[in-house]
Nucleic acid binder design. Structure first.
Ligand code: MN
Ligand code: MN
Ligand code: ZN
Ligand code: ZN
Lengths: 167, 167
DNA sequence: CACAAGATGCAAATGATTTGCAATTAGCAT
DNA sequence: ATGCTAATTGCAAATCATTTGCATCTTGTG
């Protein structure tokens, strides 16, 4: 992010229908523990903590962000990196890149492919979750015009949020 | 890139209307030297070499890619990194990210904002230059719905090219 | 409770990119 | 052409995000 200013970025939500921060029970850690066991992956303390933190995010979070929210010394950075790879491979988290060199992740509910995009403020890094994709037609055109298959896309929007438009 | 296989990726072009590899004169280094001088930036040997290499690419190229094409010892990696920052800041090159951790660059002609996207094969990394953007409407909606200004977007497509669809 | 596969901590290794600094130049003014 | 200064460069060291090796723990099971 061009970022440094941290003001108003903390819990700022703009149009966040399916915000991940649910009550705490449903769609929570146990659901994911289940999924892990099903693939003979172990439900460890580290993973539960990570999933727990992920489940209360409303926007993609960085590895370091997860680490910072974990009780100090609760889990090593390397473990988080390894966990994210595992979870990503199992389709339990989705990776996003905002172009600032760090990967960000969002938890995926069962059956959700998590496909959506973001609008990021280049001034304060506030994130708006976008729910429409509207790229279906374009993507189909790619397939037809160039003979590619399994076509996907990465798309993120950037701009100045209302509060950062000082001039 | 998932990449390792280098076969057929070398000079493979698929639909490349405004391919950067022009005859050699027009839109070449001198045009850019001009732009550099105009902003009291010096036209050095390193920059000329870099611009020259950039001008003969048909797809975005990495820093290392540029370095490898430069006569050995002709220019330090750090210099290329610094040059790319300068050129990017002057609007003479555009940065792209294919999600493999390395930035890629394309030269921009005067007046061209270079806005376009790519279709990258996840199998062999072959790149197709896309000339339609078609995001104008979506972008405008972002602006209206969320009050952002100066909205831009980063968009790249990924998929399996015809030659990599073995199964 | 014993065991083996899987996980984790820690430190060292990678890889891309950045930076400090002293030595070199390009562009402009004698 | 010569001098001068700010811009530029090479080189090595520093950053940063991410990955890995390895010895040591744990989880899931029987
Ligand atoms: Mn999101
Ligand atoms: Mn291009
Ligand atoms: Zn989409
Ligand atoms: Zn576009």
């Amino acid at each position: 992010m061009s970022g440094d200013c941290d003001h108003h970025c903390g819990g700022h939500h703009e149009g966040l229908p399916s915000c991940g921060a649910q009550k705490g029970t449903r769609g929570g850690v146990p659901e994911f523990a289940e999924r892990l066991r099903k693939k003979s992956r172990r439900v460890t303390g580290a993973r539960k903590s990570i999933l727990d933190i992920l489940s209360r995010q409303s926007h993609p979070i960085t590895i370091r962000g997860i680490h910072d929210q974990l009780p100090k010394g609760d889990c090593d950075l390397a473990t988080i990196y390894r966990s994210m790879h595992l979870l990503e491979g199992m389709g339990m988290v989705k990776r996003y890149e905002f172009g600032d060199g760090q990967a960000r992740f969002e938890l995926l509910r069962e059956g959700d492919d998590g496909h959506h995009h973001h609008l990021v403020c280049t001034g304060c890094a506030v994130v708006v979750e976008l729910h429409e994709c509207g790229m279906g037609e374009l993507e189909a055109r790619m397939v037809l015009s160039h003979g590619f298959t399994r076509v996907t896309h990465k798309l993120e929007f950037f701009g100045l949020c209302p509060r950062c438009q000082g001039g």
